[in-house]
Amino acid sequence: MQLRRCGTDAVLVEVDSLDEVEAVRAAVAAAGSPDVVELVPAARTVLIVARPGGLPSIRRILAGASLVHHPGTDSTEVVIPVRYDGPDLDLVADTAGLTTAEVVELHTGATYRVAFCGFAPGFAYLTGLPEPLRQPRLPSPRTKVPAGSVAVAGEFTAAYPRATPGGWRLIGRTDAPLFDPCRPTPALLAPGHRVRFEALP
């Protein structure tokens, strides 16, 4: 674990894996310190913003943090209904050597975890994708991916909260309200949440 000072009241924690990112995020969140203003995980880092004078408290929490995460401590689970009719469903099935029904079964049979959010408001990178569905991005990205599209790319799966360009393989779509700026918490998914996908007829 490497710590890098960011301005006067923040520290960037650098680690080696997504699992270690989640371990740091979960440890800091569980500490419930009033000195923590914001906690922002990414692929290999966690940015911790403290209130003025709060960095020593944050450093003490990090000194006692384990880099092993115990997922059983997470309590929030979100179920996202999906119509599996995406334009790349056949491609994903062919690449994996599966039928489309088996792709759906694999995708809905796993429990995912929000590793971090980014790219667009409400866009959550979910880990836990079954190995056969871990496939590369499209050779040429689409200029517009429809809002609600459910997709896979590399080790991640995600749902697009709004229409944006994107190169992920689209396997379905959801009407779940992934991002609503009028809600007290605009994003439906936050780091640490567990997520399951449920197939609609």
Rank of each mutant, 00 (worst) to 15 (best):
61 I>V: 08
76 T>V: 12
88 D>M: 04
60 R>Y: 05
70 H>S: 13
79 V>R: 15
83 R>P: 00
89 L>P: 00
59 R>K: 09
75 S>K: 03
70 H>L: 13
75 S>H: 11
90 D>W: 13
87 P>G: 11
78 V>N: 04
71 P>Q: 10
61 I>W: 02
77 E>T: 15
81 P>D: 14
82 V>A: 03
70 H>N: 09
87 P>K: 08
83 R>Q: 10
66 S>Y: 09
66 S>W: 03
74 D>T: 03
65 A>G: 02
64 G>H: 10
62 L>Q: 03
69 H>G: 01
65 A>C: 13
80 I>Y: 13
74 D>E: 15
85 D>E: 14
74 D>R: 05
60 R>W: 02
67 L>E: 12
87 P>N: 08
63 A>W: 03
62 L>K: 07
78 V>M: 07
81 P>E: 15
89 L>M: 09
90 D>P: 01
90 D>R: 14
78 V>K: 08
82 V>I: 08
88 D>R: 06
68 V>R: 14
88 D>F: 14
66 S>M: 08
72 G>L: 14
72 G>N: 06
79 V>F: 08
62 L>F: 06
76 T>F: 08
70 H>G: 01
85 D>C: 12
84 Y>D: 03
90 D>S: 14
88 D>Y: 04
65 A>I: 07
83 R>T: 09
66 S>F: 03
60 R>V: 04
68 V>M: 05
67 L>N: 13
87 P>D: 07
86 G>Q: 01
74 D>V: 06
59 R>I: 04
